[in-house]
């Protein structure tokens, strides 16, 4: 049953990617400017040059033919070559280099979100209305309201320039250097998103802790640890897992700004460059990969929900 559910979701995901790629291709086609302009600048070129570039990049072909050619290549696992961002380089190679960095950054930030957001949210939910709850809620409100741009610059100035604890830009080489370079961007990303997780976890815990079965467990004299882990945490995990999925998707989309400020050549800056230069193969490849990542993250969240909550399993079985 689960296999059918997963297959259905993957099938729907493929259709969604197809629609997404067609929409993006259409929008790029409709937007002013062509890859040729991006390639030449607006230097007025000789007719021979324009012809040769049109032939090389098939720019004179009708829209449907261009899209069909791109799709046919994708089916053969060929995302084409960049026109202007990294002229002549295979899009797959560009994405491989950029995606790895963005994934590392997203995972690092997610780790920080989990280690900070989850315990604080639980503690605030359990101690509702007390000093700790008020302090955590205030901190979360401040974190969620702080403009990421300001926070990034402040962190860079304090920890990069004044204290010199972390590098100001770049990616570094090797594991230790990479961790050092990604710390400030990951902290910036995690600050805002931890606040989201804190609020979600707090609300879920508050809801669970007020349930009759928790009061009954207390009356039975069960240890607070057992009540927290077996009853409260398990029952509160569903909304938390759902919000974690959203956070991971947000991490992928939020990296654009963070990558720009911290000079990280990730997928976000690549997409910005590609759109600015109307580099259609790079935009299409990036959108396809990001879309697939979002679909896979959502699928993983759903599967995790099936594991932790038998009620969801039941619904899935009926649905399948």
């Amino acid at each position: 049953m689960i296999a059918v559910f997963v297959l259905k979701r993957i099938g729907a995901g493929v259709v969604l990617l197809l629609v997404l790629s067609f929409l993006v291709f259409s929008l790029l086609s409709l937007s002013p400017g062509t890859p040729l302009q991006a390639l030449l600048g607006t230097r007025t070129a000789s007719p021979e040059l324009i012809d040769s570039l049109n032939v090389r990049y098939h720019l004179n072909d009708p829209f449907v033919v261009q899209y069909g050619r791109w799709l046919g290549d994708v089916v053969r696992l060929d995302l084409g070559s960049s026109i202007s961002v990294q002229g002549g380089t295979a899009v797959g190679d560009i994405l491989g280099e950029r995606l790895a960095l963005t994934a590392e950054l997203a995972l690092y930030a997610l780790l920080l979100v989990l280690t900070v957001g989850l315990p604080l949210g639980m503690a605030a939910g359990i101690r509702r209305g007390r000093r700790l709850d008020r302090a955590v809620s205030l901190g979360a409100t401040m974190a969620i309201s702080a403009p990421a741009f300001v926070m990034a610059i402040v962190l860079l100035y304090i920890f990069g320039v004044a204290l010199k604890w972390f590098p100001v830009y770049g990616t570094g080489t090797g594991f230790t250097e990479r961790v050092s370079h990604l710390t400030l961007p990951a902290v910036t990303l995690a600050t805002v998103l931890s606040a989201v997780l804190i609020r979600q976890t707090r609300a879920a815990m508050m809801n669970v802790m007020s349930q009759d079965y928790v009061a009954f467990a207390r009356l039975r004299g069960l240890s607070p640890r057992r009540i927290l882990v077996r009853y409260a945490l398990r029952n509160a995990s569903l909304p938390v897992i759902t919000s974690l999925g959203l956070i991971l998707v947000s991490l992928l989309s939020s990296t654009l700004f963070i990558e720009q400020v911290f000079s990280l050549p990730g997928i976000g800056t690549l997409l910005l460059q590609a759109v600015t230069n109307t580099d259609v193969p790079v935009v299409q490849g990036t959108v396809l990969i990001l879309g697939a990542a979002v679909i896979l993250i959502n699928l993983a969240v759903d599967l995790l929900s099936l594991v932790v909550d038998p009620r969801v399993r039941l619904v899935a079985k009926e649905g399948a």
């Binding site: 610059i153 860079l156 100035y157 990069g160 320039v161 100001v168 830009y169 770049g170 720009q260 400020v261 911290f262 000079s263 050549p265 800056t269």
Partner: peptide, 13 residues
């Protein structure tokens, strides 16, 4: 040659 697109970040660097 290091790519630093943001001017503020370049100043800090």
């Amino acid at each position: 040659f290091k790519t630093i697109p943001d001017d503020n970040s370049a100043q800090l660097a």
